[in-house]
Design a binder for these strands. Structure first.
Lengths: 154, 154
DNA sequence: ATCAAAATTTGGACAATGTCCATAATTTTG
DNA sequence: CAAAATTATGGACATTGTCCAAATTTTGAT
């Protein structure tokens, strides 16, 4: 697996470093991970890695199309491995849980805008908002968790 | 017009204050406005208003369904007046420009998730990503403006 | 109108997320 | 292996947003 990551980096003209390999592994192991969480996990592998390297690497992976970034409201950016299939996301308004949803169309942009305003559109990002099963049951209590609340628990 | 805003507030059991009326007017006048920009504009009307009041008010308006919040990557949250028609947005990857796009369906959620993972879905938010007409032409230069760059210009 | 209670606003501190920059370290190239 | 290029590091800093307690304003009932 690590070998595949190395190949991916080289194919994009990037130097191969332990930091990058580890982060590729990390977002592959933990879809929808934050930069902070990725830093924690990468540090267990590497001993240490700077916060800046994590941001640099994740941003670069997104730029190169090796990772995807989603940014739900009230949440730091989440990174995922799964790329190129234009899948979508289900986000819980209460607890922030994120699930993947396959795109019925499967290629980008999967939707036609009713009027493109002369934009050149390359992607239609769909976010379904609602309540996850867990938050449906404890509906009446602990609603509206703040970002802090959510973060504290993690 | 101000009168309508007053009515809207009262209907939702909210006190009527100059700050709230001004902010309702502001997001009506300037769709896709940031909290900071709204603060600037509101201050011209009111003389002064605290940053906290702006955030409180905008958050409250969103919560009550009197405003909508969108949050494109690399941009602070944007607020808009237009509510309840489940329209969508076109976002320029280069300069961050945002345009409204009507939803062909018109009511929420306008899309069916391919698998709802047992979520109760109430909205499908669609963001079309691409390049606006202006950024298509000056394609080769000034790509990838950072948030800073964008902010500086505004 | 007036007053007490409730709701709102204020300002200052603080938190979270992310970027800038110059230097050090590592990786690649020849 | 050494030079050149790329990457990583850490510390400062910017931006966006929230917490909190005190002051002010609005509301509802006389």
């Amino acid at each position: 697996m690590i070998d595949t990551f190395e190949t991916q980096l080289r194919e994009h003209g990037l130097s191969v470093t332990a930091q990058r390999l580890t982060l590729l592994q990390t977002i592959s192991d933990y879809p929808h991970i934050t930069a902070d969480q990725a830093t924690e996990i990468a540090r267990k592998q590497l001993g240490s890695i700077s916060r800046q390297s994590v941001y640099d690497t994740l941003n670069m992976l997104v730029e190169k199309g090796l990772a995807r970034r989603i940014q739900p409201f009230n949440s730091p950016a989440l990174f995922e491995d799964r790329v190129g299939d234009n899948h979508h996301h289900l986000v819980c308004r209460n607890c922030g849980a994120v699930e993947d949803v396959d795109c019925a169309v499967g290629y980008r942009p999967c939707l036609q805008a009713s009027d493109d305003n002369n934009f050149v559109i390359d992607e239609a990002e769909v976010t379904y908002w609602g309540l996850c099963p867990k938050c449906q049951s404890k509906n009446s209590k602990s609603r509206k968790s703040t970002p802090q609340t959510r973060k504290a628990k993690s």
